[in-house]
Amino acid sequence: MVRAPFLLLLALAACSGDPPPPSEVPSARERAPDPRAVHVAGSGAMAPLARALAAACGAACPLPVVVEESIGSGGGVRAAADGAVDVGMISRPLGEAERRLDLMLVPGGMDAVVIAANAEVRVDGIAGTALRDLHAGLRRTLGDGSPATVLLRDRGESANGALDRAVPGLGAARDLAYARGRMRVLYHDRSMVEALVATPGAIGVTSLGALTAGHPALKVLALDGLRPSVATLADGTWPAARPLAWVLRRDRAGRARPFLDFAASPEGARIARRCGYLPAVR
């Protein structure tokens, strides 16, 4: 009889679960700079540009510039704010909360959001309405009647917003696709490019810079007859463009200044054009 309450208490304690996690309130984090290198991280769309600039910086940059794997625009902003990296990369305008972090925003140019296709796809372009219907599941073939496999980027991807401005109704169609869960979702530019290369008939959204930097095996499709290029970005005719920027803390600006100056130099602009980006106007 004496054991019964004890056993009950033991049973209750055993299945009482663990204590809950701490509050979700963001905490300030301070990380010391790396004295050996300047670290750059953020949007995957800017990573090819940053790597090309870092490789070409040479003597203009006293400290070596290390471009990390993509952590997304949001991750780049947070990492820069915490001092985890010296420069963050962002391929969208700052959000409301991000503006309150009081970071320096240095324009990095423009990127063309494009529809890329597997190299075996025979069509050269796609209509905006067809793209919307493919996402909505209203059609399953490309213009030549060949089957199409639509690959999606994650919901928070800035390329989605840029493309939605160019193709009316695409956002709602993509939401429908997310809800149905039948289309594969990729979380980074690199994984999107890899999936496009590996999947016959695949089409998906990516960055012109990401393709120009090293994936000639993919085909860039014209959208409603327009072909993405630095020239159409420059003259404003390419409708799916997104702004690129470098973000950095004011108290760490000195460490990153040589790299950003090089990026904004004529040599930096030449490198950007070569990589498929429209350089920022000085």
Binding site: E68, E69, G74, G75, G76, A79, A84, D154
Partner: peptide
């Protein structure tokens, strides 16, 4: 990535 893993929620 001992430091930056924290910032890449999508990854």
């Amino acid at each position: 990535r001992p430091t930056l893993w924290r910032y890449d929620s999508t990854k």
